[in-house]
Design a protein around this nucleic acid. Structure first.
Lengths: 247, 247
DNA sequence: TAGTGGTCTAGACCACTTC
DNA sequence: AAGTGGTCTAGACCACTAC
């Protein structure tokens, strides 16, 4: 089951093996899994390598360690997804809905002001401006405006933005997305939004502003979204930091 | 600087030492910090111990590792807080505002229905129901209703809920908070909320439902909040999961 | 007492980046 | 070629939990 000569790291192979057993129901929520020493003997690898695998699965929310007792399968497996940054497409699929896109506008504009600054585009640089209506199960869900540095994702075409921009950046461009900050606020629909989203004026809107970054902190995109308040709930999982109390 | 005979783990001492140097500005954003081998020789400890410290600081957002290049101080230090779960009190302080509480109601009620189920309170058990108006700089910010299992935090008094419930649970009860899931949606104020929060009927409200859990996944609390849309933005940082693509 | 996870050592070889 | 982080080993002692 573990191939020591595979190019895949051993700890990664162990992670996959453990996750598979959990997914198959072989180990259920709350079950104790084999101890680190047992894994170590089972696969003929050192305990530190097992620990690396287990540590990763703990921080991914699959496992829980308890000193002196053992390591256990975490409950609420469904909620694990809530902790990860997702694209609209992934988000809707995760909710069991069919994501769709209507492209309103796709152009490059000269960068200036705070948007250019956030995207670290020098004076005179260009950026993509993409306006889309995102739908779920063929009904409008959100209005989105995305900005990207042209330099960073040069060659982006209209076809590329009908699906997941994150998917494109990761799979086609081979970049690694690191994190994003998001600001959410409550608002009400004005005339323009109500028409585009098919809701009444004054109906609740959830406004989201997102700044995405690559793993090395290169700014990737800015997204302004307006989600229909009657169809969309933003769901997020947050961990308590070890360092919070230090302020 | 490093005390090998201290009860504090060595890796933790290194973490603190690195954070201090960053906070003091000795190492600035984007700077390369000493290599793992340099730390290892500097403190006369093994490289694996250094790695444990650095790994923790990377996942806390302080450092960034780049293969073949080195380890660097992360940019956007201010945004590090965004990734951690905070109480209302901590949240407001982080925004530079003075948190306050007006207690509307504090009682124990018999648990039943989905709330009892979520809090894992058996039939016939009791739970605390706490209604508070939370203020920032002496102006109403949110209306909150909190439910806690009486069994878990037995002996809670009215005085305890004027400040941070998280602080009380962690410092007084010695429990460790693990994580929470939160659902956010946009709504508009009705008569009751508009009166309590001092806003107009129909004004935007940000509704937040929070389920908190201890480290061992014991459900700690349920909180329903209604934040004033004109005063409050929810801000959150999210990391891209290694496991997202696997769905 | 036996077993668990927590911490730590003193090495090793690898792929990668920089020069 | 030299230096970096990534992976891995084969042990060790500790505090804690369960019995």
């Amino acid at each position: 089951m573990i191939d020591k000569h595979s190019p895949m790291p051993i700890y990664y192979q162990i992670e996959e093996a453990i996750k598979e057993r959990i997914d198959k129901g072989e180990w259920r929520e709350g079950d104790m899994i084999p101890s680190e020493r047992e894994f170590s003997e089972m696969y003929h690898i050192s305990r530190m390598t097992v620990r690396q695998a287990v540590t990763n699965l703990v921080s991914d929310g699959y496992l829980i360690r308890q000193i002196g007792r053992g390591t256990f399968v975490a409950r609420r497996k469904i909620q694990q997804k809530l902790f990860g940054l997702t694209s609209f497409t992934e988000d809707m699929k995760g909710r069991g809905m069919k994501p769709g896109t209507r492209l309103l506008d796709f152009r490059t504009v000269s960068a200036s002001g705070p948007i250019a600054e956030q995207l670290q585009i020098p004076d005179g640089g260009e950026m993509y401006e993409i306006k889309r209506v995102r739908s779920a199960d063929d009904l409008p869900m959100a209005l989105e405006i995305t900005y990207l540095s042209e330099d960073l994702v040069r060659g982006l075409t209209e076809e590329d933005v009908y699906g997941s921009l994150y998917g494109y950046v990761e799979k086609e461009l081979g970049m690694t997305i690191g994190y994003a900050t998001q600001e959410l606020e409550s608002s009400v629909a004005r005339e323009a939004e109500s028409r585009t989203l098919g809701i009444a004026e004054g109906a609740p809107l959830l406004l989201i502003k997102r700044f995405s970054y690559l793993e090395d902190e290169t700014p990737l995109e800015i997204v302004y979204s307006a989600y229909r308040g009657d169809r969309y709930k933003f769901v997020v999982g947050m961990h308590r930091n070890r360092t919070d109390s230090n302020g």
